[in-house]
Simulated scan of single mutants.
Amino acid sequence: MMRLDPYLNFNGNTEEVFTFYKKVFKRDFTSLMRFADMPGGEKMSPADKTKILHVSLPVGDSVLMATDVLDSMNQKISAGDNFSISITVDSETEATRIFDALSERGEVIMPLGKEFWSDLFGICKDPFGIQWMINFKANQK
């Protein structure tokens, strides 16, 4: 199985945006993590700790997801790069194949690697400027 979901980036107002979307779609968040919840989060500024690291909201058969972009982490967004397409796959082999194919002649933003939330995760831009997030987690349902 392969799943495609939109992943949005905001300049510090993800909570406001997703509270609005929650009312519009009449659904509850399935995940809400703040930057304070991540490893090393205790070292962040009080303002950054409260920002959204990840939020998920089911909408139909898809999941709308988002994060806040932090200046303190040298993250910047502008129109056109404030979203990604998130792909969740069933195997490391498939994750690697898709990542390599999408990033060929494109740009690797975050190489595939283990993260605290995933067995394999990476971010790349394809040759046409579309940003992709590839995710594999063993034993996912």
Rank of each mutant, 00 (worst) to 15 (best):
M73L: 13
F35P: 11
R34M: 02
K23D: 12
V69W: 00
F121M: 11
I123W: 01
T88K: 13
R3V: 03
R27K: 14
D61H: 10
R3Q: 13
P39D: 06
P58H: 13
T67S: 15
S84T: 11
S118F: 12
V69P: 01
S103N: 08
N135R: 07
I98R: 06
L70A: 08
D68G: 05
P111S: 09
L70C: 04
L112R: 05
D28Q: 05
T50Y: 00
F83R: 06
L4R: 00
G129R: 04
K137E: 09
S31W: 00
R97S: 11
A66T: 07
K114G: 08
G41R: 05
S118I: 13
K51M: 12
G106K: 02
M65L: 09
M110H: 04
P39T: 07
F20I: 10
I52L: 06
F136Y: 15
T93K: 15
H54E: 05
E16K: 10
V89S: 06
M44I: 03
D81T: 14
Q140K: 15
K141I: 13
R105G: 03
I77F: 02
L102I: 10
E42F: 02
S103V: 08
G60P: 04
E42T: 04
T19D: 15
K49G: 07
L64T: 05
